[in-house]
Simulated assay, not measured.
Amino acid sequence: MRIEFTLDCCDLQRTAQFWQAALALDVEGELDGRFIALGRQGVTLTLQQVPEGKTVKNRMHLDLLVEDLLEEVHRLEQLGATRVTPLAREEFGQTWFVLADPDGNEFCVAREPTQT
């Protein structure tokens, strides 16, 4: 079994460019300008163009775990992400920001927990 994540978006090309740069993914395929598959190391993120915009909170989202939280948030903002939470959240021993991709899909950027 293989798992593929699919994300709806209105602006297929812009959203694909964002996620390709954000996650250093390769374009694995494109179908009729409606789907773009991005992947690397066995993980595939498929972007699916839909006519309707996002209106409610995602039921599932990506968590990006990074070593330098503020540096990564800044890099993602330069790529077109926007902050949903202006200040970092802290709970359960974790620190993170909620961001949205250029199409409004939320995702979290969190400090990688230290290994002990």
Rank of each mutant, 00 (worst) to 15 (best):
94 Q>D: 10
76 L>F: 05
66 V>A: 10
2 R>K: 13
89 R>M: 15
40 R>E: 04
102 P>M: 08
38 L>I: 07
64 L>K: 07
91 E>L: 11
104 G>P: 04
51 P>L: 07
37 A>E: 13
95 T>D: 05
33 G>D: 08
62 L>Q: 05
37 A>K: 04
59 R>W: 10
99 L>I: 07
61 H>Q: 13
8 D>Y: 00
90 E>K: 12
83 R>A: 11
87 L>K: 13
8 D>R: 01
73 V>H: 03
41 Q>G: 10
38 L>F: 08
60 M>A: 15
1 M>I: 07
12 L>R: 01
89 R>Q: 15
23 L>K: 04
20 Q>M: 14
53 G>Y: 03
39 G>C: 02
76 L>M: 04
72 E>Q: 14
19 W>A: 10
17 Q>M: 14
54 K>G: 12
30 E>D: 10
104 G>F: 00
106 E>W: 02
2 R>N: 15
65 L>N: 05
17 Q>P: 14
80 G>W: 06
2 R>H: 14
27 V>T: 09
112 E>R: 08
112 E>Q: 13
1 M>D: 13
44 T>R: 11
45 L>K: 00
97 F>G: 06
104 G>C: 04
58 N>C: 12
5 F>G: 08
26 D>R: 09
15 T>D: 15
70 L>F: 11
20 Q>R: 12
35 F>S: 02
10 C>H: 10
111 R>H: 06
94 Q>T: 08
37 A>V: 05
88 A>R: 11
10 C>Q: 15
95 T>Q: 04
26 D>I: 09
15 T>G: 13
20 Q>F: 12
6 T>R: 03
34 R>L: 14
31 L>M: 10
27 V>C: 07
80 G>Y: 08
21 A>S: 13
111 R>N: 05
32 D>K: 07
21 A>E: 14
10 C>D: 11
48 Q>I: 00
59 R>F: 10
80 G>T: 08
4 E>T: 09
8 D>K: 00
42 G>K: 01
48 Q>S: 08
8 D>N: 02
55 T>F: 06
61 H>K: 07
25 L>I: 11
10 C>Y: 07
93 G>R: 03
38 L>M: 10
55 T>L: 12
35 F>K: 01
54 K>P: 08
77 E>T: 07
89 R>W: 13
51 P>F: 02
94 Q>F: 06
44 T>V: 13
26 D>H: 11
50 V>T: 03
87 L>T: 13
36 I>Q: 02
15 T>L: 14
113 P>V: 01
63 D>W: 09
36 I>Y: 02
33 G>H: 04
102 P>H: 00
40 R>K: 01
72 E>K: 04
9 C>R: 00
8 D>C: 02
3 I>V: 10
6 T>H: 06
11 D>W: 06
72 E>Y: 11
110 A>M: 12
109 V>S: 05
90 E>Q: 15
90 E>A: 14
61 H>R: 10
46 T>I: 03
100 A>M: 05
35 F>G: 01
27 V>W: 03
105 N>K: 00
75 R>F: 08
102 P>Q: 06
79 L>Y: 12
53 G>V: 07
104 G>K: 02
101 D>Q: 03
45 L>V: 01
